[in-house]
């Protein structure tokens, strides 16, 4: 199955049509997330949205807060959160000094458009830059889900969270895109790309994404296939072989590993702290995922390395 699809369509998606979304929280904490977001967007030549999700005022006093904010506009004090987006734009320019179109863009807090509970910064001269800056207020998963649904994002890039267990379950279950969680991500560190390969359909896309990342970043690639029993079935073995064939066809060296044991525990132990994990999203029924979790959810809960879950 894997082989058929791969040989028929070498690149079965058009990277230029991809849309990535990076969620930032502050200049202080989100620098690595934004940097990786920009890097991954450039790897895929995808358009890049940056969203800041701020706290929403209690509904009781919501109108008083809005009244104050409108009054603050008269004093040229910008809406809280817009300064994070201003920082994000500045940071994106620094990260892509060669991008002349991006360099021309000036942030103007007056040029914002409010609709559907979101504030979108209108960027002049943004032809060719494909940057979107959006401010939302409310609960993180709810707002990210709305943004992804509204704009049709393919990948959401999110920083690690203290409340990891809750975050892992909610974002993987409810965000309708691929998810990249940057846990303890160190931009200076040289990671090894670790692809978790099995016979599921989601593995195909994760291999394609992994190949693009490996090519661009020059990171060594490892594939890991884990079987619960000592015997590796034809499906697992075939998927691993085809993955290797795909990397070979693109001139990327790959190390293959076959281990037995509990899949999640094996992934986590193998990943250690120096891998960048890519795995396919679960194909389990959503109700089963909700009740019992899934391999990606459990892996995300238990590991501390950056992890990309491809849907």
């Amino acid at each position: 199955m894997v082989a058929t699809i791969m040989t028929k369509k070498k690149v079965p998606f058009d990277p230029k049509s991809l849309k990535f979304l990076t969620a930032v929280s502050s200049a202080e904490y989100s620098k690595p997330t934004l940097k990786m977001g920009a890097l991954i967007a450039s790897v895929f030549d995808a358009s890049h949205g940056v969203v800041y999700v701020g706290e929403r005022a209690s509904e009781f006093h919501g109108s008083s807060v809005n009244l104050t904010r409108q009054n603050l506009d008269n004093w040229n004090i910008i809406h809280p959160g817009l300064e994070v987006l201003e920082w994000a734009l500045k940071e994106l320019k620094t990260l892509s000094p060669e991008n002349e179109e991006l360099a021309k863009i000036q942030f103007n807090p007056d040029h914002v458009y409010e609709e559907d509970g979101r504030v979108r910064v209108i960027l002049p001269d943004d032809k060719g830059c494909r940057i979107e800056l959006v401010l939302r207020e409310g609960e993180l998963v709810d707002q990210l889900r709305k943004e992804i649904q509204l704009e049709g994002y393919d990948l959401a890039i999110i920083g690690g969270s203290q409340n990891k267990r809750h975050l892992a379950h909610s974002i993987l279950q409810y965000l309708p895109s691929s998810i990249f969680v940057l846990q303890k991500f160190n931009p200076r560190k040289k990671y090894k790309l670790l692809l978790l390969v099995d016979d599921s359909m989601a593995t195909i896309k994760s291999i394609e994404w992994g190949a693009l990342i490996a090519e661009k970043l020059g990171w060594p690639v490892r594939t890991l296939t884990v079987s619960k029993t000592k015997r590796f079935g034809a499906g697992y073995q075939g998927a691993a072989d085809k993955a290797k064939a795909y990397f070979d066809s693109r001139g990327i060296e790959v190390e293959q590993f076959f281990l037995t044991g509990d899949p999640v525990r094996t992934f986590v132990e193998f990943a250690g702290d120096n891998h960048f994990v890519i795995m396919g999203a679960s194909t389990l029924n959503p109700v089963k995922q909700f009740l019992f979790g899934s391999k990606p959810i459990k892996t995300l809960e238990q590991t501390d390395v950056p992890i990309l879950i491809v849907r």
Partner: peptide
Amino acid sequence: TAVAAPACTIIYSSGL
């Protein structure tokens, strides 16, 4: 807390 009085919610909404 920031929720009790409107004035408290207003200063909290500044993010500062």
